[in-house]
């Protein structure tokens, strides 16, 4: 009886990390290595590449987790849809695909627990509705963009302008490529270097208070602390121009980093912005160990898209006469 019980427990522990319903902390038997000063060691180069979408696709409504076969089928379907090496879309589409698979690094599978969305809360796997004021603001901004998209460089997105990348965050999400994140730790600090677009966050762990509310930053102001083996990073003071899915300057972001195995950090973030979203929401993304190094990112260099978009718009205006 005793022996059977022990065997059952070890089977549960063994299965826990791959069980779809497993919580990230389920593998209690594994203890994260420590840095020389005793912090759980998160250092290294990690990638969050995955095909799992942030929000649950309509086809999986009510189905938070896929079977192995469903996951394989879905990955195949997505890879087929996004494959930019296809030449079957007619001239225009084929030209758009000239930025082909060589450049992409989206990964080729879903997250290990085969969830259908990175969002784990609310349970429907969708970003909660915006508040009426935020919806109005977002609609107006979109309408303005439609009318003024090619007025000048300021009308283009922050990503095209190489100022801030929407998926580089914080919070950090998988993007089409450069999904590498390098984490370094020193006593009192964690440094997160995001390959996209070579932005680094220096996160103090010494309990200092946030900067004054009058100071606003694109990446916000991050403060970290340990809760057990989980690094919790609390970020405020966003400037509101980096509108993450409709967020504004009141965004309060909480990120949690837990190293759950030698090769995985479970990364979870919660968006709390009561003036933008009707309730907080949370996503969970595994950061998988990968080989470095992280190279410099060239954003503007050799990139003529911005100039060409604007020159094209000016040429179109002239020819309309």
């Amino acid at each position: 009886m005793q022996a059977r019980y022990a065997a059952l427990v070890s089977a549960v522990i063994f299965l826990a990390p791959i069980s779809p319903s497993a919580e990230p902390t389920a593998a209690k038997s594994w203890i994260a290595p420590r840095t020389p000063d005793g912090q759980p060691d998160l250092q290294g180069v990690w990638t969050n590449s995955t095909l799992t979408p942030l929000e649950r696709p309509a086809q999986f409504a009510g189905k938070p987790v896929l079977s192995e076969q469903e996951a394989a089928d879905y990955a195949k379907q997505v890879l087929q849809q996004v494959n930019s090496d296809r030449r079957d879309g007619g001239t225009q589409v084929d030209v758009n695909r000239s930025y082909n698979e060589f450049w992409r690094d989206r990964g080729n599978s879903l997250v290990a627990d085969r969830r259908t969305s990175l969002i784990v809360d609310p349970p429907d796997g969708k970003v909660p509705p915006l508040t009426p004021e935020a919806q109005k603001r977002v609609d107006e901004a979109r309408a303005w963009m439609q009318d003024h998209a090619t007025d000048g460089p300021e009308g283009r997105t922050l990503a095209e302008r190489c100022i801030s990348w929407t998926t580089a965050g914080p919070p950090m999400l998988p993007g089409p490529y450069n999904n590498d994140v390098q984490i370094l730790q020193a006593p009192g600090y964690v440094v997160i270097l995001n390959e996209m677009i070579h932005d680094a966050r220096m996160i103090p762990l010494d309990g200092r208070s946030h900067i004054a509310p009058g100071i606003r930053e694109l990446m916000g102001d991050s403060r970290g602390h340990w809760e057990g083996d989980t690094l919790v990073v609390d970020t405020t003071n966003f400037n509101g121009e980096v509108s993450f899915r409709g967020s504004d300057s009141n965004l309060h972001l909480t990120e949690r980093f837990t190293r759950v195995s030698p090769d995985v950090i479970q990364y979870e973030f919660t968006i709390d912005d009561p003036t933008a979203f009707t309730k907080p929401w949370t996503a969970r993304i595994p950061l998988n160990k990968t080989h470095g190094p992280v190279y410099e990112y060239a954003c503007h260099e050799g990139n003529y898209a911005l100039t060409d978009i604007l020159a094209g718009a000016r040429a179109a205006e002239k020819s309309a006469k």
Binding site: T35, P36, Q43, Q182, L184, Q185, A186, Y189, V191, L193, H198, D199, A200, M202, V294
Partner: peptide, 21 residues
Amino acid sequence: EIVQSRDSVVIVVEMIHDVRV
């Protein structure tokens, strides 16, 4: 701003927020 661990030194340069690892 300099932060260092056993295996790396990180230098954040205010101008123009470049970081060297």
